[in-house]
Design a protein around this nucleic acid. Structure first.
Lengths: 131, 131
DNA sequence: TGTCGTAATGTTATATTATTACATTTACAT
DNA sequence: ATGTAAATGTAATAATATAACATTACGACA
């Protein structure tokens, strides 16, 4: 797979990397209008590609997007996130045992595991301290 | 919690119960326009309430909704689904050990588990047979 | 029986998220 | 310089969801 990023893809990825929170597509668009990107199509195109190559993940419960911190992320089609209810902080979890666990659940039901999307909600360390 | 359904809630719930596949909000709307429901607001209101009391779940990866088959469903805020990539069949999983597993993952990260949304994709028994 | 208050419903408009279709430009191999 | 594939640009619109406010239904109870 070609991992070279096009110009627009770099721009979108950079915005996501700088952000500590997941961003919505239209927030990204707003952010980068000064860079000449004018339409949602351009943003969604870049997002699609970035997701495809695993550099960005979508947080489905929020219709939002985050850059993957892990250079060697294996979570292309499968994603596992811990999401703080209070501060929105997202932690990506890469635990091989999780996929294995789900795979075995599938087996029990005579299904064949392919991939998953898991979003665990709770409160993070710092939010717990401050309350 | 009051579990009585209002008229509109009953209508929406009935449509979902009859369906073998998850339905989109606007498909539901289309279905029930003959019953006098005319606007998305009415559908979304009913869906919100039904979700709140656990009689309906949202499939986030599909922006779709299904009726919960289990009379005593415990999955109000947390949901776990097995989704067939081929036929779209949805199986709801109610495994207490799953929540416990996630709870322990949270503990390891000093977070406090609250609830989760898990969608496992794969191919179901019958689709496996037919291929 | 009236009337008060609340829950449910109805209505219109609009916000938000995402895609389609097609035109133009860029980059690069030959 | 020219063909061609990838990338980008542009306009329109589809699909999903919510906000704001008006009206109606209905039970409690004076």
């Amino acid at each position: 797979m070609n991992l070279q990023l096009s110009n627009n893809e770099k721009i979108v990825h950079a915005v996501l990397e700088k952000s500590s929170k997941p961003l919505k597509a239209y927030s990204i668009l707003f952010e980068i209008q000064k860079k000449g990107i004018k339409s949602p199509t351009q943003v969604y195109r870049a997002l699609d590609r970035l997701i495809e190559i695993g550099k960005v993940h979508k947080i489905k419960s929020k219709n939002s997007y985050i850059a993957c911190k892990n250079e060697k992320c294996i979570n292309k089609s499968s994603t596992t996130f811990l999401i703080c209810n209070l501060c929105e902080k997202i932690t990506e979890i890469e635990e091989e045992t999780i996929s294995k666990h789900f795979s075995s659940i599938c087996n029990q039901l005579s299904s064949k595991y392919s991939n998953h999307s898991l979003e665990i909600f709770g409160t993070c360390v710092s939010c717990n301290k401050n309350s």
